[in-house]
């Protein structure tokens, strides 16, 4: 390389080096996902063959329909979509309501109740499973959408996020709305929530991601493919298709694809939602 000391040559050299470093790291990060796609298109015998195939010249697509139908991945996806939608909508709704109360209304015990909301952030869900399983059983909700979703319909973090967003709503707007005869409900739906849209979007993506990726709880409260979510379904698929690794790999792609699409569309909201958790306290 032209390390002659001439500034321009050196600049080009460092630039090339930077691209090289970035590319090497990108390949390392993407490699597991890439091999998953490749392997999902190979026959099991090809996957075990050495040297390994890094490019499928004759892709076999049957693994996808096997995973989708016989492996129940289609059903699992539907279950995950239903549960995730219920949880996301529920969390956003309860967070908007509670956040509104804490931002705009005065009431006795406000400080204490806000502390109660924040206290829920200190209790990881793992700690509550011993009793929650019996609660769900007593309610007759074992192996049901209610059992999967209802415990997660409220969020202290979301209420906190919405409160902070509502506090940014200018006081003047509130006074103006009040002069126009807006009650609280109308002010909430016409002024406060539209103005807090970025926070709503961030919370939605955050809630969606959390619900979609849940593992421990769905494992505990489901027993068959009728209600099993995609994460647990993937474990099941792996266990039942040991001799068909390509089907397992196709299942992985099916399980990951919805999030890939969602994240490509909502990249900005996602970053905001994730970093919102990093508020300096």
């Amino acid at each position: 390389m032209a390390a002659s000391g001439r500034p321009k040559a050196r600049r080009i050299a460092t630039r090339a080096l930077r691209y090289l470093l970035l590319t090497v790291l990108a390949v390392v990060v993407l490699f597991p996902l890439y091999m998953t796609i490749v392997n999902s298109l190979l026959r099991p015998s090809q996957i075990a063959a050495r040297p390994p195939t890094f490019f499928p010249t004759h892709p076999v697509w049957g693994s996808y329909s096997d995973a989708w139908n016989a492996g129940h991945m289609g059903r699992y996806l539907v279950n995950s979509a239903i549960v995730t939608t219920i949880i996301t909508v529920g969390q956003v709704a309860t967070a908007i309501l509670a956040g509104y109360a804490f931002a705009f209304l005065e009431f006795p015990l406000k400080r204490t109740l806000f502390l109660v909301f924040l206290a829920t952030l200190m209790v990881p869900f793992e700690i509550t499973i011993v009793t929650n399983i019996s609660t769900i059983n007593d309610l007759g909700w074992f192996n049901s959408y209610q059992g999967l979703a209802v415990p997660f319909l409220a969020t202290g973090f979301g209420a906190f996020l919405m409160r902070q967003a509502f506090l940014q709503v200018p006081r003047d707007l509130q006074d103006a709305a009040s002069l126009d005869g807006y009650g609280h409900w109308r002010f909430m739906s016409r002024v406060a929530v539209p103005l807090a849209r970025p926070a709503v979007a961030a919370l939605s993506v955050f809630a969606f991601l959390g619900a979609w990726n849940q593992y421990l709880w769905p494992l505990l409260v489901t027993k068959d493919e009728k209600y099993r979510t995609v994460q647990i379904g993937l474990k099941q698929l792996r266990a039942t298709s040991i001799d068909q690794v390509n089907v397992t790999f196709a299942g992985v792609i099916i399980a990951a694809l919805p999030l890939v699409i969602l994240l490509l569309v909502f990249q900005k909201q996602l970053v905001r939602g994730l970093t919102a958790g990093a508020v300096k306290g």
Partner: peptide, 19 residues
Amino acid sequence: AYLLILPSLLIFGIFVFYP
């Protein structure tokens, strides 16, 4: 205010604080 907070409090009470 209490009405708005109630849904969250119910869920927290049953599935967070009680357990």
